[in-house]
């Protein structure tokens, strides 16, 4: 890239007559020597830390290596991922429904959505998870029928919902309240002229939402949703409250309690959490690209040199999205 541009820059100006010396047009880029100095210093600090950590007994690397691909651990990571994906999918679907309900002209739908939000956002997720765990104690059977009459069918709650599904429900309902607000922010970000144009074309409210408003809101919805996914991945460690004990954190804690080695198994858990987060971030990148239609790069207009400006803009967008993801990590 830099070769190509400097090559272009040194090309002699066409204005110069035959044999005339080329006008010096070589561009000297601004140098940033201090960046290199700081980077080297930081690398040195990291190197010292790594060398030290490699020799430190407490980290117990052989144990880390032994358990990182242990079947119990990888299975627990699978459960963590499954919990995350299931509760996020349900949470997003419910969140979209709730946000649309809050924006609807129907006061009944509005109130229902508001009360839902009030309850699930107003209490800690840990408390909610403990409640879901106690569900089978509070409601020993799930009945279908007319209230205060003999039920048509009756199932014991424990037979219908095991701890895994209770954990999924608990996480999903809590998440739906947060997703509803994220989706609502997205809906509000769309120019009201858009729904007006759709209305003028004869589209109903539902079609307008589905075809015109929501697709445009997605651009605003996706980055904070990526945050929520990563946050959810870590919140799954709370489902021990239900109690569901097969996910990553509780499983590694159990193993470490049995072999009296807390630190290495924490490292094992962290490695898995980081690995899953990285995969999810890649997914977010592609989703963002998909919904950037109409605002990103120009369609290919046939052969012709890509201009430097376009390249720079693309690079800027990529950097910005990477920065956004790192922001997500911090949570």
């Amino acid at each position: 890239m830099s070769d190509a541009s400097s090559g272009r820059a040194t090309r002699p100006a066409p204005a110069g007559g035959p044999g005339a010396a080329p006008v010096p047009t070589k561009v000297v880029r601004l140098r940033h020597p201090w960046r290199i100095v700081v980077a080297v210093l930081l690398l040195a600090v990291v190197a010292v830390f790594v060398i030290d950590a490699a020799q430190r007994e407490a980290f117990d690397w052989p144990t880390v290596g032994k358990y990182v691909f242990d079947q119990r651990v990888s299975q627990a990571a699978g459960f963590t991922l499954l919990l995350t994906v299931l509760s996020m999918v349900i949470g997003v679907v419910l969140g979209v429904i709730l946000a649309v309900m809050r924006q609807s002209p129907n006061p009944v739908l509005k109130t229902v959505a508001w009360v839902w939000l009030w309850i699930f956002r107003g209490t800690p997720v840990y408390v909610q998870l403990v409640f879901w765990g106690l569900l089978s104690t509070i409601y020993t059977s799930i009945d279908l029928g007319v209230p205060f009459m003999e039920p048509w069918v009756s199932y014991p709650t424990t037979a219908l919902l095991n701890t895994f599904w209770l954990a999924v429900i608990g996480l999903a309902l809590n998440e739906s309240a947060y997703m509803a607000e994220i989706v609502r922010a997205g809906l509000l970000s769309v120019d009201p002229g858009q729904s007006e144009a759709a209305t003028a074309l004869g589209m109903g409210w539902g079609t307008t939402m589905r075809r015109v408003v929501l697709p445009q809101a997605m651009r605003v919805i996706i980055p904070p949703t990526g945050n929520e996914v990563i946050s959810m991945l870590k919140t799954t460690s709370l489902v021990t409250a239900v109690p569901f004990t097969l996910e990553l954190y509780t499983r590694t804690r159990d193993i470490s309690a049995a072999i009296f080695a807390p630190v290495p198994l924490l490292i094992v858990a962290s490695i898995w959490y980081l690995a899953i987060t990285s995969v999810l971030m890649v997914g977010q990148y592609f989703l963002e690209k998909r919904f950037a239609r109409g605002v990103g790069a120009r369609p290919d207009t046939g052969p012709g040199p890509v201009t430097g400006a376009m390249g720079a803009v693309d690079a800027g967008i990529a950097e910005a999205s990477i920065a956004a993801k790192h922001g997500g990590d911090a949570r």
Binding site: D191, G193, Q194, E196, A197, A198, T199, A200, L201, G202, M203, G204, W205, V212, P215, Q216, F291, R293, G294, V295
Partner: peptide, 25 residues
């Protein structure tokens, strides 16, 4: 009902000052 109003609007085209094209299409 809004649904019937929507049906009426099908036969009336409208062009806006700010175009209001759907940017994602």
């Amino acid at each position: 009902h809004p649904k019937d109003a929507a049906k009426q609007r099908r036969d009336i085209g409208m062009v806006f000052q700010r175009f209001n094209l759907f940017p994602h299409m």
